[in-house]
Amino acid sequence: MIEVRELTKYYDGLAAVDHISFEVEEGEVFGFLGPNGAGKTTTVRMLTGVIKPGSGSVSIMGFDIRRDPIKAKQIAGVVPDLSNAYSELSAWGNLQFMAELYGVPGTDARKRAEELLTKFDLYDRKDHKVKTFSKGMKQKLVIAMSLMNDPEILFLDEPTSGLDVQSARLIKEMVRELNNDGKTVFLTTHYMEEANDLCNRIAIINHGTIVAIDAPEKLKMRIGGMQRVEVSFDTPVDVSCFHSISGVISVRRSGDKLRFYTNEPGRVIYQLVDYSRSNNLEIVMLTTLTPTLEDVFVKLTREQK
């Protein structure tokens, strides 16, 4: 769907985006995770044809963004960072304007606007000017606007940033739903959980370069040895009893719990269950802890320096 090769953008001699390459597959939610100033917005702007790449190439479903900008933009929906609907127009007026810009025929446009307004719970406010809307309502409208042309690919630049918890959740739910309906989504965020919850694959970007690209769980596995299994039995058991368990890197006691560091949590759990059965112990608590995306992020960006 999206193919990016050696994409680069300099601002005043500083590389905002530095030779990045990646592909986004049809039907996936692809996340671009990085701190403020990492180059996320600059990348999205180049992918959506808003600014010209310094060098490198971008292709959207086979259309080169420089040679065929109109065709590439025609199949994309865009929610730019910090962008607004026209506050002097109504919600309905904004949606119809989008439809006209993308050449959506009138009857389709009316039907789609009604569907989207209903879906986003804005229908009863459709004739009100956008300037009377709350921030969350405005953001929902901007997303609805980006869907008027029924895009193949949706670009969302920090769509939940600065929103209250409820609006943010609603928007995340929307993204999931759109993806279930088969839409490809390119999403940037600096929220770890958001990337973790929504994305099939994540590119971690820092200082304009991509540090890693993979599925969230695989990224976590990459920093191996950090998974752990914690168990607590009804009667205390000494650490020394578990030296024969295989697949454990180290065991540590912490309070009434035993913590097993391992790369094979499944195998450890089987053995712990067997142990409790053969020794007539009851398991009070058993849990596995994986490294968070945050652990991954911290480790990878530290390695980069």
Binding site: R45, T48, G49, V50, P69, I70, K71, K73, Q74, A76, V78, P80, L82, S83, N84, A85, Y86, S87, M98, L101, Y102, G103, V142, M145
Partner: peptide, 14 residues
């Protein structure tokens, strides 16, 4: 100022 431009620039118009 009202930040409507990026949306326009991303639309399929020259």
């Amino acid at each position: 100022q009202t930040r409507n431009l990026e949306r326009l620039a991303a639309a399929p118009i020259s």
